[in-house]
């Protein structure tokens, strides 16, 4: 059963009382909220996600609620509770839905350790994944949103999960987070895309979330081989340019963008070595989305044993 099987009022009631057990990628979140904008956001952007049976094992127990203090009468706020504990400072009530998205990212990024976790968008085509690690402001989500509206499968907008045991990428398709001008750019680029209501004045500026394509959600259990590591950079007026990046440099930059590379110790080093060895690594500068789509469309995975890596121990 998917979230869409519940009517908006059923969903709202369920979220208020027992909560829902929402499946995103390989994780189950027990989610409760009394905040109407959050219920609406879930009804809109999570309609195609499976609901797991009530009262099963949940990976994360999350509650979005309004703090009980005097302020609630003057400046209403929203609070993200992880299993009853406050994780972030309260935010204005208006930002409750983006807060849920950030909170769900926090749940995964601070607990999951069977995967090397990279702050990156990931898309797939023809059985191969492209990881796009990038600091905020590089336009990775804009590029990701454009790609998934032009035939690429969304694997994740924020978290690349590379399974340590076999190096495969585990999909975690969730709404794509867009900010400021990117929102209108993608709206124009794909008028059929579904967006949550814009929220202004967050720490990231104005934000809105784009619904993940239904096909990406349905195929969330299919792990994928990574073929490319691409560092995107939006630069106004620039001609699209894909530049090969030495693997050792790519190694360090991906590690810099990883949540748990250092935590994983030797396992992390080995997983990263394997990932970089299997991938063609590039810096990618672009300004026009259509050019980017064209260049991504022409990507070819590397021929087997093209790299000459040596790995050893002192």
């Amino acid at each position: 059963m998917n979230v869409s099987a519940l009517t908006p009022s059923e969903l709202k009631l369920r979220l208020k009382t027992a909560g829902i057990y929402l499946q995103t990628g390989s994780f189950t979140t027990h989610l409760k909220t009394t905040i109407p904008s959050v219920a609406e956001g879930i009804g809109l952007l999570y309609a195609d996600y499976p609901l797991v049976e009530q009262d099963c094992f949940a990976d994360f127990h999350v509650n979005l609620t309004r703090p009980r203090n005097l302020r609630r009468w003057f400046k209403p706020q929203a609070l993200f509770l992880f299993d009853g504990n406050t994780i972030f400072k309260p935010l204005p009530l208006d930002q409750a839905f983006p807060m849920l998205e950030w909170g769900l990212n926090w749940c995964v990024s601070t607990h999951v350790n069977h995967c090397l976790m990279i702050h990156a968008a990931v898309v797939e085509k023809g059985g191969f994944a492209a990881i796009m690690p990038a600091p905020p402001g590089s336009g990775k989500s804009t590029l990701c949103a454009a790609l998934v509206n032009r035939g690429w499968r969304l694997l994740s907008d924020e978290l690349a999960l590379i399974r340590v045991s076999d190096g495969k990428l585990i999909p975690l398709p969730r709404p794509v987070s867009l900010k400021n001008e990117s929102i209108e750019i993608i709206r124009r680029y794909e008028p059929n895309a579904i967006f949550s209501r814009k929220v202004a004045d967050t720490i990231k500026g104005t934000v809105a979330h784009m619904k993940a394509p239904a096909d990406s959600i349905a195929r969330a259990a299919e792990a994928v081989q990574v073929a490319w590591v691409i560092f995107p950079k939006y630069q106004a007026g620039a001609t699209a340019c894909l530049e090969t990046l030495p693997q050792s440099r790519a190694f360090m930059r991906v590690a810099d963008n990883s949540f748990n590379y250092s935590l994983l110790g030797l396992q992390g080093f080995k997983a990263m070595t394997k990932l970089i060895d299997a991938s063609l690594c590039y810096d990618f500068t672009y300004s026009k989305l259509d050019d980017a789509i064209e260049i991504f469309g022409a990507l070819k995975p590397q021929a087997a044993n093209n790299n000459h890596m040596y790995a050893n121990e002192l």
């Binding site: 030495p246 693997q247 050792s248 190694f251 110790g265 030797l266 080093f269 070595t273 000459h308 040596y310």
Partner: peptide, 26 residues
Amino acid sequence: SQAVSYCSWDDDEWVFYNNLSGDTHL
């Protein structure tokens, strides 16, 4: 008693992992 692992794709740059400090060096 340190076990250093390393990898390299060309002769110019090498990535070293030191198990004692847990640090990675280019």
